[in-house]
Design a protein around this nucleic acid. Structure first.
Lengths: 348, 348
DNA sequence: TTGTATGCGTTATCAA
DNA sequence: TTGATAACGCATACAA
C-alpha cells in the first residue's frame, strides 16, 4: 500500500528479504509454476509483495526464460479512426484473455513488414500474428518476410497468419472467394445483371480473391464481367470514392456496383450521391465485411458478414498452442446479408 | 543472410566472436550511444551481425538498462471494429516514429485499469499513455490508479494522459466543454430552440464535460435545458439508439438532438428512422468527434471536429521528452462543422 | 520443500 | 578506444 516517492522498482529480492525467505522461494511463490511452497511462506511472500507494491519485471523474466509472454501483431496500416476489423478481432480476444498485444503497422508494404517483424522479433514475444497484407505475386520482400518469420519460429516463437492461405505457418483464413461469390450469386438472384466491380488494389491478395469470387459467382449465373468491368482502386473509402468517379466518367451501364469492402462501398456511395444519383433507386451498391460502424448508413448496406471476432479468437488460440508438426489451418466463412442498398430489380 | 534452421537466437556474443572483438565492443558498435568504435571494428561487427542475422534482445536490454524503449497505452474498451479515435491518433503517430506500442483495454473500469497499469508497469515501458476513461467523482479505484501511475513515474517511467485535465501527469486535453459549447451556440444560430441532449454515462468525465458544454452554450443564448432534457445512456451506438427510443417514449418536444459523440448520434439516427421520422426534416441531430468513417452517413452529420491525430502526436512527444518539474499541459480545441443533419430552422 | 549457485543477453564500470 | 568484470532481475538445476 506504500507509494515510494523514491525511484527504484521493488525487486523480487526485496520481497524475499521482507518475507524472510530466499529469492527462489519468493519466485516460486509468485511467478513459479507448480505450487511447491509451504502455505505459510506462500502467504508471507504474497503479503510482502503487496506491502512493497512488487511487480514482476517481465523483461527479466523474458531473459531468464528465453522468451516473453506477450503477443505481437502486424497490421497493414492505420487509417485515422477506422481500424481494421482483423486487428479489432484479435484485440478483443486478447482483452478477454487479459493479454497484452504489441501492435505495429507494416504501412502496407512487405518491405516495411520485414523490417517490422525483425523489430518485433527482438522483443522475443510468444507469438507474432500477421494480419493480411500479402500480394498476389510474391515479391522478393515477401520472401524475406517469410524468412524472417521462419527464423522467429525456429527460435521457438509462434507465428500465425490471418487472412490469406498459403504461408508456411498456422493460418486463420477467411474464404474471400467464397464470400464474394455467394454475395454475387445472391444479387443475381435479385435480378441484377449489369455490374461493375470496384476491385481495390490489383496486387493485394485479399482484393484479388474477392474480385475473383465476384467474377466466379456471376459467371455461375451466366454473367460475364469484361476486364473493363473491374475498376481498381485503393482499399479504403477514398479509393471507393475515386473508383465511383471513374465509373461515372466512363458512363458504365451498371445497375449494381460490387465493392471489395464496405469502406470502399461507402466511398462509392458518397461519390454517386454527389453526382446526384438517388440510391438505391439509381444504383445498387454492396460491399464485404459487415463493418458494424456502417450498419446505420442509409441505405443500409448489403454485404457479407465476415466472422472477424471468431477469427481473432482462433488466431489467439493457435498462437497459444504449441506449434504442431504441420501448419494448421482454420477456415472461416461468411455469409451474405442483403439489405436496402440492393432492393433488387423486378425484371427478367 | 542465413536462416538457421536450428533453434537458438543469435546473441551479441556470437556476433562479437565472429567479428573477433569483445562483446562490449560489439555492443557499442550495434546498440551503443556515442560512436567510439574504430571504423574497422564498426564495419566488421555490422557485417558479422548481418551475416548471422543478429537481432538485439530488447528484453535483455531492458533489464540491463533498467527500462525498455516501447510505449504502452491503456484504452477504454474495444468495440468490434470501431476503434477509439484517441487510440488511432496515438497509433498513427507511433507508426510515423516507427515505435511499437503495447495496447491493453481497461474495459471501461477504473478497477480494471488499475490492474492493467500494474501489468503494464511490469513491462517497464518507456511511457504509459492513458486514454480517457475518468469519471466525474474520483472513486477509490481511480485514486489507486493514480497511485499506480505515480509509482511508475517515480521509477523513471513517463506518464501522459489524454483527454481530461486534472491528473498529476503530463496531459493532452481536448477541451470538451468548449467544443460542445461552440456547437450548441452555432446550432442556436441556425434557429434551433427545443433541444434534447443525449448525455452518455452520467459518471464519465468526458461525457459530463460535453453535456456541461452543451448546456452552457445554450444558456449563453438564453435557452435553458431542464434536467429532464438530458438523457443518459451508453457511450456508444447502442447507447444512442436506446436514448433516442427513450426520447420518443417521453414524446419530448425536441427539434434538435445534441449527442455527446458521433457514434451516439448515429445510434439515435437509426432509432429515429426506425420510428418513421424523416431526417433531418423531422429531427436534427448533431454529434461530436467528426469520426471520418461516418462522414458519409446520410444525412451528413453535423459535429465538432476534434484533432485526434494531433492529440496522438502531442501525447507521443510528451512521452518521449524527459519529465519536467511540473506536469505539462497541451490544450487542443476543436471546431464545429455544420452539415446536412442540421439544416436549420427558418423560425423566430 | 528450501536455499545456493549459476545462467540468460545486454549494458555499465573501470582498468589497461 | 578496448576489453575483462560486475551488475540487471529473475528462473532453475542441483544440492541440502
Amino acid at each position: 500500500m506504500e507509494t515510494p516517492s523514491s525511484s527504484t522498482p521493488v525487486t523480487l529480492e526485496d520481497v524475499a528479504r521482507r518475507a524472510g525467505v530466499s529469492p527462489s522461494t519468493a519466485s516460486r511463490a509468485l511467478n513459479g509454476s507448480a505450487r511447491k511452497v509451504r502455505d505459510e511462506y506462500q502467504s508471507r511472500v504474497h503479503a510482502a509483495a503487496a506491502e512493497l507494491g512488487y511487480t514482476a519485471n517481465t523483461a527479466a523474466q523474458a531473459v531468464a526464460r528465453g522468451r516473453g509472454d506477450h503477443l505481437a501483431m502486424v497490421v497493414n496500416g492505420i487509417n485515422d479512426d477506422y481500424f481494421s476489423p482483423v486487428a479489432a478481432g484479435v484485440l478483443k480476444a486478447a482483452e478477454a484473455d487479459d493479454r497484452m498485444v504489441t501492435m505495429i503497422s507494416s504501412r502496407n508494404s512487405a518491405q516495411q513488414a520485414t523490417r517490422v517483424v525483425s523489430t518485433l522479433r527482438s522483443q522475443r514475444p510468444r507469438a507474432i500474428i500477421l494480419a493480411g497484407g500479402r500480394s498476389v505475386t510474391s515479391t522478393v520482400w515477401e520472401e524475406r518476410l517469410v524468412e524472417e518469420l521462419a527464423a522467429f519460429q525456429s527460435e521457438g516463437g509462434r507465428v500465425v497468419a490471418i487472412s490469406e492461405e498459403g504461408m508456411p505457418f498456422d493460418t486463420v483464413s477467411l474464404d474471400n472467394v467464397a464470400a464474394a461469390s455467394e454475395l454475387a450469386a445472391a444479387l443475381v438472384g435479385l435480378g441484377y445483371r449489369r455490374v461493375t466491380i470496384l476491385g481495390g488494389p490489383a496486387d493485394a491478395r485479399t482484393a484479388h480473391d474477392r474480385v475473383q469470387g465476384f467474377v466466379a459467382g456471376l459467371a455461375g449465373h451466366g454473367i460475364e464481367v469484361p476486364p473493363s468491368g473491374v475498376i481498381h482502386c485503393g482499399f479504403d473509402r477514398d479509393g471507393g470514392y475515386a473508383a465511383a468517379g471513374e465509373c461515372l466518367r466512363r458512363r458504365m451501364p451498371a445497375e449494381l456496383v460490387l465493392a471489395i469492402s464496405d469502406t470502399v462501398a461507402v466511398g462509392a456511395i458518397a461519390r454517386f450521391r454527389e453526382a446526384g444519383l438517388s440510391l438505391p433507386a439509381d444504383m445498387a451498391v454492396a460491399g464485404i465485411d459487415d463493418v458494424t460502424v456502417l450498419r446505420d448508413v442509409a441505405p443500409a448496406l448489403t454485404t457479407v458478414r465476415l466472422p472477424w471476432p471468431e477469427a481473432g479468437r482462433a488466431a489467439l488460440d493457435l498462437a497459444l498452442q504449441p506449434a504442431g508438426a504441420e501448419p494448421r489451418l482454420v477456415r472461416l466463412t461468411g455469409h451474405a446479408v442483403l439489405r436496402e442498398s440492393t432492393p433488387g430489380i423486378g425484371g427478367r
